[in-house]
Design a protein around this nucleic acid. Structure first.
Length: 316
DNA sequence: GAGTTTGAAACT
DNA sequence: CAGTTTCAAACTC
């Protein structure tokens, strides 16, 4: 498939968006570089990457800020430095993360029972969801207003380890994510992905090619899944488990699933072809109907090429 | 409600 | 980065 060169156009639907920055570090010798808030993922805000420095930023889920600040604070003070005055409401010694005593909506949250993590690790659902503990049964909890410093450090540690740590696990429409799909994929081995141990199953979605699970039964057309959906129970007969190698990827190949050959590159190339057709139609001044026809024909050709190239490579 | 199983997160 | 340990939720009895 040849990818046509994009021409300038005012077609706005298929505009490419710049990659989303996750963390910005600027060396002391360089001028401060501000992340452009316009490129942030939806619902995310920017914070300084270090408590005691002005250098670098982290992106945090907005709900952290909603907890920390009753009043919205400006992302960047005019002088580019993060001062207590600039953001806190006077209750915090932290430049950006002072709790504002937000009242927790206890109805929407399941209480945790953490005993050893102090609710400051991702083991804790409250912490992982960006919530403070309230009405929980946890022991030695530090995920609260009284321990805001520890909490901030814990958040930063998590973000240092994984900048995506507080992103929703299920794709929510971010560029490159697929809605209703676990972004990281599960790693289940014994549950058949049909128990709540499985993050995919718990989220009521099917496992995908990103999962590394073994013996997966959480896929479209799975008889076990149908049974679970109708009866609500899953009888795991491990002795007759003939699907030890039933991973989503392997199944994809066995079932000749189109996902096996439709990679992101293929999708990108297809979109480029369709876009070129749209631009051509626009340039020639064709009607909407004619443009649609051209695009559909192009799409058909793309599909044909995908199938042919996959057949050649033995993928199907 | 105590004990077991499970898989994600954290650690080495 | 793979293997191991820790952890808390899900599950079973």
């Amino acid at each position: 498939m040849t990818i046509p060169q994009r021409q300038s156009s005012d077609l706005s639907l298929l505009r490419m968006v710049p990659p989303l920055p996750q963390q910005y570090m600027s060396p002391a010798s360089l001028p401060m570089i501000r992340p452009n808030p316009a490129y942030l993922p939806p619902g995310c805000l920017i914070s300084p990457a270090s408590i005691n420095s002005n250098f670098g930023y982290n992106i945090l889920p907005a709900h952290y800020f909603s907890q920390f600040h009753q009043k919205p604070c400006p992302l960047f003070p005019d002088n580019s430095s993060f001062t207590n005055e600039s953001c806190s409401n006077g209750q915090s010694e932290m430049p950006f993360f002072g709790f504002a005593g937000t009242v927790w909506d206890s109805k929407s949250k399941k209480p945790c029972n953490c005993t050893k993590s102090q609710c400051l690790k991702l083991y804790c659902d409250c912490f992982a969801n960006g919530d403070i503990c309230s009405n929980c049964k946890c022991i030695n909890c530090c995920n609260n207003v009284e321990h805001e410093t520890d909490r901030f450090k814990a958040i930063k540690t998590c973000l240092d380890r994984n900048p995506e740590a507080f992103r929703p696990k299920i794709g929510n429409g971010k560029l490159g994510e697929i809605k209703g799909r676990h972004n990281k994929g599960c790693n289940c081995k014994r549950s058949g992905c049909l128990k709540n141990y499985c993050e995919c199953y718990e989220a009521k979605i099917m496992c995908s090619s990103t999962c590394k699970c073994i013996g997966c039964k959480n896929y479209e057309g799975s008889p076990e899944r149908k049974t679970v959906m109708t009866t609500g129970c899953y009888d795991d007969d491990t002795s007759s488990n003939l699907l030890k190698h039933n991973t989503p990827k392997a199944r994809c190949k066995q079932n000749r699933c189109p996902l096996a050959c439709i990679t992101f590159d293929v999708i990108e190339a297809t979109c480029a072809c369709l876009l070129a057709q749209a631009e051509e139609a626009e340039k020639e001044g064709y009607s909407v109907y004619q443009a649609e026809q051209m695009i559909l024909e192009e799409f058909g050709q793309c599909l044909t090429q995908i199938v042919q190239s996959t057949l050649k490579s033995g993928g199907l």
